[in-house]
Computed example of a mutant assay.
Amino acid sequence: MTDDGTLSEEARERLADVVRLQPTKNKELQEAWGLESGSEVHSYLEGELKEYYYRDDNSLIRATADAADLVDVEPGVESGDGDDGGVPAVIRVPELESQVFAVVAGPNDRSESVVSVLNKVRDAYDVDPPVEDVRQALQNLRRKGVVEVIYRTVPTFRLAAHRAEIDVEISDS
């Protein structure tokens, strides 16, 4: 942090990494930042970003809501090469969201209802999540920019881009 309390350019970039990679660990940030050890990561976090991160119940590093607003980065999303506000190249999501992503209608297909997606998840993964959890997963994927909503009689969903254009990483949350 600079003397006036604002973040340096390096600190802002590293904070964006925390937001983008969350939930994350010292090791992942060590690799991203080119540091020698996890203790260097811890020292940097405590010295420069203390008010912008916290550790969750599993000791994973997460950014505060203020941090995400400050760096204007969507949590768990890595933008593509063009960085034009289009679909992200990588998303980090919980397992149910990855399952929903895998079965929801493609960008050239007819969009489908939450119940349709729920039934496809049940069939594909032999799980039975509550319909509200599937609805929430679809909304989270929409906020990440990889699913779009089409309003018909009921809101329906489909991918915003082809699955092959987006890598899905399952997070610990």
Results as ranks from 00 to 15, higher is better:
residue 31 E to I: 10
residue 142 R to K: 14
residue 117 V to L: 06
residue 113 S to A: 14
residue 119 N to G: 00
residue 152 R to A: 11
residue 47 G to M: 00
residue 112 E to N: 00
residue 84 D to S: 05
residue 26 N to F: 14
residue 88 P to H: 07
residue 150 I to M: 08
residue 136 Q to N: 15
residue 49 L to K: 11
residue 98 S to D: 10
residue 62 R to M: 09
residue 93 V to Y: 08
residue 54 Y to F: 15
residue 121 V to G: 05
residue 155 P to L: 10
residue 26 N to H: 15
residue 39 S to V: 10
residue 24 T to E: 08
residue 106 G to H: 02
residue 148 E to H: 03
residue 142 R to T: 14
residue 67 A to E: 11
residue 42 H to N: 13
residue 115 V to Q: 15
residue 62 R to D: 01
residue 94 P to Y: 00
residue 149 V to F: 02
residue 116 S to L: 01
residue 153 T to D: 14
residue 74 E to G: 00
residue 139 Q to H: 15
residue 106 G to V: 02
residue 82 G to V: 03
residue 84 D to F: 06
residue 37 S to D: 08
residue 146 V to H: 07
residue 49 L to R: 10
residue 81 D to Y: 06
residue 26 N to D: 14
residue 145 G to P: 04
residue 83 D to V: 05
residue 110 R to Q: 13
residue 35 L to K: 11
residue 100 V to P: 10
residue 43 S to P: 01
residue 47 G to C: 01
residue 142 R to I: 02
residue 155 P to Y: 10
residue 94 P to E: 03
residue 118 L to K: 12
residue 142 R to P: 01
residue 146 V to F: 08
residue 65 A to W: 02
residue 33 W to L: 06
residue 127 V to R: 12
residue 66 D to G: 03
residue 43 S to H: 15
residue 38 G to W: 03
residue 72 D to P: 04
residue 105 A to R: 10
residue 125 Y to R: 03
residue 138 L to S: 10
residue 100 V to T: 09
residue 138 L to V: 09
residue 41 V to Y: 11
residue 32 A to M: 00
residue 110 R to H: 08
residue 27 K to A: 14
residue 155 P to E: 11
residue 131 V to M: 06
residue 68 A to G: 03
residue 22 Q to N: 03
residue 78 E to N: 00
residue 57 D to Y: 13
residue 69 D to W: 05
residue 147 V to S: 11
residue 143 R to I: 01
residue 30 Q to I: 09
residue 26 N to Y: 15
residue 120 K to C: 02
residue 31 E to P: 02
residue 96 L to C: 01
residue 30 Q to A: 10
residue 151 Y to A: 06
residue 83 D to I: 05
residue 28 E to S: 13
residue 24 T to L: 04
residue 55 R to Y: 14
residue 116 S to I: 01
residue 57 D to I: 10
residue 149 V to D: 02
residue 94 P to C: 00
residue 153 T to Y: 09
residue 55 R to P: 03
residue 111 S to I: 07
residue 63 A to I: 03
residue 82 G to W: 00
residue 128 D to F: 08
residue 52 Y to S: 05
residue 135 R to S: 14
residue 93 V to R: 06
residue 63 A to L: 05
residue 111 S to L: 04
residue 27 K to S: 14
residue 96 L to P: 01
residue 25 K to L: 09
residue 48 E to W: 11
residue 71 V to T: 11
residue 81 D to L: 12
residue 95 E to G: 03
residue 70 L to P: 09
residue 116 S to N: 11
residue 58 N to D: 15
residue 154 V to E: 13
residue 140 N to W: 05
residue 126 D to P: 01
residue 131 V to H: 05
residue 22 Q to V: 02
residue 110 R to V: 12
residue 76 G to F: 02
residue 103 V to T: 04
residue 57 D to E: 15
residue 34 G to F: 04
residue 140 N to V: 10
residue 84 D to K: 03
residue 59 S to N: 15
residue 125 Y to G: 06
residue 131 V to N: 05
